[in-house]
Design a protein around this nucleic acid. Sequence first.
DNA 1: AAAATATTGATATAAAAATATTGAATTGGA
DNA 2: TCCAATTCAATATTTTTATATCAATATTTT
Lengths: 214, 214
Amino acid sequence: MMNDSVSLYTIRRLPLYLEFLKELKAADVEFTSASEIARNLKIYPTQVRKDLTIAGLTGKPRVGHKVDESIILIEEFLGWDHSLNTVVVGAGNLARALLRYHDMNVTGLSIKALTDNDPAKFGTHVKGLKVYSNDDLAKIRDEFDIQVGIIATPASEAQNAADMLIENKITTLWNFTTVRIKVPENVFVEQTCLYCNMAVVTYHHNKRNLIEYK
Amino acid sequence: MMNDSVSLYTIRRLPLYLEFLKELKAADVEFTSASEIARNLKIYPTQVRKDLTIAGLTGKPRVGHKVDESIILIEEFLGWDHSLNTVVVGAGNLARALLRYHDMNVTGLSIKALTDNDPAKFGTHVKGLKVYSNDDLAKIRDEFDIQVGIIATPASEAQNAADMLIENKITTLWNFTTVRIKVPENVFVEQTCLYCNMAVVTYHHNKRNLIEYK
DNA sequence: AAAATATTGATATAAAAATATTGAATTGGA
DNA sequence: TCCAATTCAATATTTTTATATCAATATTTT
C-alpha cells in the first residue's frame, strides 16, 4: 500500500486475478490459492503470489486466500472501490464503444460527458450522455468534477485534445490514439495503442505462415 | 527477417516509429535518425536503433535513415504490406469501433464479416459489412478466406467464440474480452485487455491524489 | 499423534529488457 | 586536407522482470 513504485506489470495482472476471483465468487467458492489462479491464467504461481502480496493480500498456508476478501482488497488497491469522473474528448465510435464497457463505467471510471469539435454533434446524446463543445471543457470540469480525460479523437487532433485537457487541470489522461502526446512532467498518460497490438497479431500470423503474398 | 524470436516489445514499438516516419514523409522530410525518432517518442536512441536493426533497416552514419524506405521496410516486417482477412465475432459496439479504425482495415487486417448469436442481427449491416450467425463461420471462412478472428463478444461468450473459431481452423485470434481464453498450442492469441490498462490509470491517479474517498 | 501434503511467503537465481559505452563511418566546414 | 560533429551499430552494463528454491505452517490422512 505504501510501497513506492509498483510495477506496471503487476497492476495489469491484478484485473485478471480479479476476474477469476469474481468467477469463483459467482460459483460460491470460498477459498482459492495463488497456485490455482496461476493455473487458470497459465502463469507462474510465484508471480501470482508476489502480485497478491504487493496488493496487500495475505493467505494461510495450505488454505490459500479468502475469495471475497481478496476481491475487496484488489479493488481497493486499484482504486476500483470508487469511480473517477471522466470526460471523453471525441464523440465517435470509439467513445461509443468505451461507453459500452458499462462495467468499466461503474468500477474505476465513470464517464460523465463527451466533447467534440463538430458543431453538428453539440447537444446530441450518446448512450444518455450529452455531447459538448471542446470549448466547454472548463464548464464540464467544474460541473462534474472531472478527474480523468480520455482522448478518443482522430490521431491528428490528439495533441490538441491533450493540451486542452491539461489547460483545464485534468492531468490524468488515457490516450487511445497512435500519437505519443507531449505533456509536462506532472501529467500522467496511459497509452492504449491498438495498432501496436495489431502489429503483434499480423507479425505472428505472417511469421507462422511464411507464404508469399504477391 | 530470419531472426528466430523477436521481442513483443520491439514489435509493439515499431508502429510508433512508423507513425512518426509517416508524419515526416507527409512533411517531405527525406532523412531521419534513430536519435530523432527517440527524441520524438521520449525513449532511448539505442532502443530505437536496436528495433530498427531487427526490422531490417540500415542507416548511414551522420545521415540516418531514408524515410520512405524505412516506412516500406517496417510495413513489410510487420506484414502491413498486405491484409489478413478477418472476421469479428460479436457485432456490438466494440466491433463498430474496430471497423471505425479504417486505417487498420486496410493495413494489416481487413475485416470481411461479423457474426453474432442474436438472430435479430442476422442479415443486418454494420458499416457496410453483413452480420452472420455464428453458425455460419465455416461458410464465411471459405467465402472470404478468413485468416484472423477477433473476439468482441461479452466476456461470458469469449471462450465459446474462441472454440468456434478454432474449430473452423482460424488459429490467429485477437481477444478483446477480459477472459483469458484457453487454446491449444498451435493457436496464437493476442490479448487486449482494456480493464488492465484502466487499472494503470486509476491506480496512478489515486496514488497521486491520496485523498480519502468516503 | 505422526506423517504426508499443499500452500504461503521470503529469498535466490535466471532471463529479458532497457540503458550506457565505445569505435567506426560519414559529412560539413575550418 | 584536416578537424569537429553526428550518427550508426556492436558490445557491455545495469535494471527490471520472471522463475526457481526452500523453510515455515496449516490441514488432512493414516
